[in-house]
Amino acid sequence: MSMVYPESQIHHFLEELAKLLDREDNLTIAFLTREFRKPETSELVRHGLVRRLLTLTHATQRTFEILTPWETAPTHDMLMDATSHLHTFVINIFGAIDNLARIWCMEADIRKPNGTPLKPMSIGLTPTHVLVRASLSQPFQDYLASADAWFAYLENYRHALAHRVPLYIPPRQLTAEESAEFERLEQEIAQAKNDYQRYGVLRGQQQRLGIFNPLIMHSYREQARPVYLHPQMICDLLTVIEIGEHMRRELDGLPPP
């Protein structure tokens, strides 16, 4: 069976992932060695942001090891293990960005126009967090605006995972004809429940239908857009690292503590 991704694309994935792991390491060191104005910021950096960055790189590496980009017939256990790491990854992508926004608001003392502190729900970097975005430099604001579609995807998938239908990796993709055959076999399987040999033959026929595509999905009823697992994880990790690098430069622009 042919691979889902072209061989050249797989090499590109692996090269990009290696580069991202180096950038994550540099970003982690930069935040760990920085002197912050407030002790609560230092705690959030060490026990929030840095832990999340380490978790993200671990989850990415393990997913690529368990469900390689050249895998065409994963087992149930492989899919479940990869899905567990995917859940960890998506939650901590969202959390890392939230940590970066809070680090900025704490260190730069971002407040409402009337001087009162921002409420927790008002702190973030999405398009709805207008006050926080407005407090950043124009280049950083422009970067965040260019990522608005990505923020929409992230919120959709994170909220589905946390509150509604959890993310999963479908084991097979079926055509319309294959779906009809799957349902026909399902009816025969139900009738053959006491004939174990017949049951095994039918289940084997059913499992051979379709092909595997490494897609991430949640609810079809919500018309969620499936995305490919490996390039999406690279894209998400890259975006968090880029936001972190921008934030480091923003913090560099503050007066020393």
Rank of each mutant, 00 (worst) to 15 (best):
residue 2 S to A: 13
residue 3 M to G: 10
residue 4 V to Q: 06
residue 5 Y to G: 07
residue 5 Y to W: 12
residue 5 Y to E: 09
residue 7 E to R: 14
residue 8 S to R: 08
residue 9 Q to W: 00
residue 10 I to E: 05
residue 11 H to M: 06
residue 12 H to G: 11
residue 12 H to E: 15
residue 13 F to M: 09
residue 15 E to A: 15
residue 16 E to L: 14
residue 18 A to H: 06
residue 19 K to D: 11
residue 20 L to E: 04
residue 21 L to K: 12
residue 23 R to H: 11
residue 25 D to Y: 13
residue 25 D to G: 10
residue 27 L to A: 06
residue 36 F to W: 12
residue 39 P to K: 10
residue 43 E to Q: 15
residue 45 V to M: 03
residue 46 R to W: 01
residue 46 R to I: 02
residue 48 G to C: 05
residue 50 V to F: 02
residue 50 V to W: 03
residue 50 V to E: 03
residue 51 R to S: 12
residue 53 L to Y: 04
residue 57 T to P: 01
residue 57 T to R: 10
residue 59 A to R: 09
residue 61 Q to R: 11
residue 66 I to F: 08
residue 67 L to P: 03
residue 72 T to G: 08
residue 72 T to Q: 12
residue 75 T to A: 09
residue 76 H to G: 00
residue 79 L to K: 06
residue 81 D to W: 04
residue 82 A to M: 04
residue 82 A to Y: 01
residue 87 H to R: 08
residue 90 V to Y: 00
residue 91 I to Q: 09
residue 93 I to P: 01
residue 97 I to F: 04
residue 97 I to S: 03
residue 97 I to P: 00
residue 98 D to L: 05
residue 101 A to N: 02
residue 101 A to L: 05
residue 102 R to D: 03
residue 105 C to L: 05
residue 111 R to K: 14
residue 112 K to I: 06
residue 114 N to L: 07
residue 118 L to F: 14
residue 119 K to C: 05
residue 119 K to N: 06
residue 120 P to Q: 09
residue 120 P to Y: 14
residue 122 S to R: 02
residue 123 I to Y: 04
residue 126 T to P: 02
residue 128 T to K: 13
residue 130 V to F: 12
residue 132 V to H: 04
residue 133 R to W: 02
residue 134 A to H: 11
residue 135 S to V: 14
residue 136 L to A: 10
residue 137 S to M: 11
residue 137 S to I: 07
residue 141 Q to M: 12
residue 144 L to M: 13
residue 146 S to C: 09
residue 148 D to P: 00
residue 154 L to T: 06
residue 155 E to Q: 08
residue 160 A to N: 06
residue 161 L to E: 15
residue 163 H to Q: 00
residue 164 R to I: 10
residue 165 V to H: 13
residue 170 P to K: 07
residue 171 P to N: 09
residue 173 Q to D: 05
residue 177 E to D: 09
residue 177 E to C: 00
residue 180 A to V: 12
residue 182 F to E: 00
residue 184 R to W: 07
residue 185 L to F: 02
residue 185 L to C: 00
residue 187 Q to Y: 03
residue 187 Q to L: 09
residue 188 E to V: 00
residue 188 E to A: 06
residue 189 I to R: 02
residue 190 A to W: 01
residue 191 Q to L: 13
residue 193 K to C: 12
residue 195 D to A: 12
residue 196 Y to N: 07
residue 197 Q to F: 15
residue 198 R to A: 11
residue 198 R to K: 15
residue 201 V to G: 10
residue 201 V to M: 14
residue 202 L to H: 04
residue 203 R to W: 12
residue 204 G to K: 08
residue 208 R to C: 14
residue 208 R to L: 14
residue 209 L to V: 05
residue 209 L to T: 02
residue 209 L to S: 02
residue 212 F to S: 03
residue 213 N to P: 01
residue 214 P to L: 05
residue 216 I to D: 01
residue 216 I to W: 00
residue 221 R to Q: 11
residue 222 E to A: 15
residue 223 Q to C: 01
residue 225 R to P: 03
residue 228 Y to M: 13
residue 230 H to Y: 03
residue 230 H to F: 01
residue 232 Q to H: 12
residue 235 C to R: 15
residue 238 L to S: 14
residue 239 T to A: 11
residue 240 V to H: 02
residue 244 G to E: 00
residue 244 G to W: 01
residue 245 E to G: 14
residue 247 M to G: 08
residue 248 R to L: 11
residue 248 R to C: 04
residue 248 R to D: 07
residue 250 E to M: 12
residue 250 E to Y: 04
residue 253 G to V: 01
residue 254 L to H: 07
residue 255 P to R: 00
residue 257 P to L: 03
